[in-house]
Nucleic acid binder design. Structure first.
Lengths: 240, 240
DNA sequence: GGAGCGCTGTATCGTATGTTACGTATTTTG
DNA sequence: CAAAATACGTAACATACGATACAGCGCTCC
């Protein structure tokens, strides 16, 4: 079975004419970076002409050059988004019984914080600590407990912390309490809920500052959010 | 010092207008793949117009969009050529970008799972999946949302899942429903609550199987628990 | 409440990019 | 050795991509 373009190339490189073979070798040599550049650069690097590059990708089975580039990008994305596969190959560092699930979770956390600067966190923290405004928290079907959890902790250090629970109609009534000085913390992950999006939009129209916790695919609420915290969530599991 | 474009973005994201901030967040969320695609695709993914994307890369200091893409590609190439540094650097003790808090948290998780065999987890999982009995979940003041969270997920794969909330007196009434085939999941961390201990003892007397999630100092409920999961919780923080 | 500023989207333009046609060179076969 | 077929590059073409000018809008500050 052929899973990557690199395998596809080394599989067919034997049947290629000289010029296309040079293209293939150039691509393999610095895989896959050259393939992401333009045809002109690719051809210059391989020392052949542009049409030869085009014939090369055509022989690999691609309809046109952009389609070839998209495949390379998808391959790269798959590699980057699951660093766990690379961590799995060498024996686990601690020597203990490291499960794939645990390693994936640790990697997820590292990735999440990698894309989160201290400054952003400090900004959000100071915004939440601002005593002049009220703080509202809300979550989706599964994430509502997270909102509740955070609300319990926030309530310790300041008053005016409200967790919005129950029916959608009950949230609406709280909208009239919200203003520009207030902060709305929303948890919305994976199966994004329409009701939450609508609520976020209404709050946004009232000038409420929205802090959104979501996953790497970004809930549509990100449109209205002042701050977005995107966490990596994928783990090797049969759960959806 | 700013070495990557991601850092550059998180450094200036605070000074950006709303539209460009959406672009920045979209790029960070699936870094850096979106940036390698066309302006049109980028703008569509971020929900803004093409010029906003161009203004965004311009604000980052790039002369034009292709120059921005080249920088991303160079960054990617550097990452790919030294895959070791990618996964090995973050855990390094002197790591510059890694916050002490994050490292402590990751260490906590590793320690927690180190003392937790696969067999124990499998036992608990099969016990929870046992359809013959009911499952009850309860937590303390701060940990109750965790119980709620777990209940929401368990409820997906089986019925007869009950989260015990509200007043202590209300839990008592549910005791008569519990028997030897049932499982009670308790979260009790740090300031162990007397009410929870009493409840656990009564449940234990009725033959209920107790699964306890606690910290490394072990809640007194561990006396009655069939399974105990002790997690490391200490992080460097001013929080008690 | 009014005036000014800054942000954002629509529409247009120029151009760089991928694509194709054709002629020449090189190799292969009878 | 000759003839044909395949491969490669040059050059012209069309598409779509990035860039820019402009107008509408909301926001802030006076």
């Amino acid at each position: 079975m052929i899973s990557s373009i690199a395998e596809l190339i080394s599989d067919r490189i034997g049947t290629m004419p000289a010029g296309e073979r040079r293209a293939a070798q150039t691509l393999i040599a610095s895989y896959p970076m050259i393939g992401l550049k333009t045809v002109a650069e690719f051809s210059a690097a391989a020392g052949v002409s542009s049409p030869t590059i085009l014939r090369f990708v055509s022989r690999l089975g691609f309809q046109n050059y952009p389609e070839f580039q998209s495949s390379l990008q998808d391959e790269l994305a798959a590699q980057l988004q699951s660093p766990a596969t690379r961590t799995l190959n060498p024996p686990s560092p601690g020597g203990g019984t490291a499960s794939p699930m645990l390693e994936a979770t640790l990697d997820n956390m590292r990735e999440t914080f990698k894309h989160l600067s201290d400054k952003q966190l400090a900004d959000i923290a100071s915004r939440l600590a601002d005593r002049r405004g009220k703080t509202f928290l809300i979550g989706g079907r599964f994430t509502d407990p997270l909102a509740r959890y955070m609300a319990a902790h926030l309530a310790v250090i300041q008053s005016d912390v409200f967790h919005l629970a129950g029916q959608e109609s009950m949230w609406r009534d709280r909208l009239i309490d919200m203003g520009k000085r207030d902060v709305l913390v929303i948890f919305d992950i994976r199966r994004y809920q329409d009701s939450l999006v609508r609520f976020a939009e209404k709050a946004h129209q009232r000038g409420v500052q929205i802090v959104l916790f979501t996953d790497q695919w970004l809930s549509p609420i990100a449109r209205f959010a002042r701050y977005v915290i995107a966490g990596r969530t994928a783990v090797p599991s049969a759960w959806d």
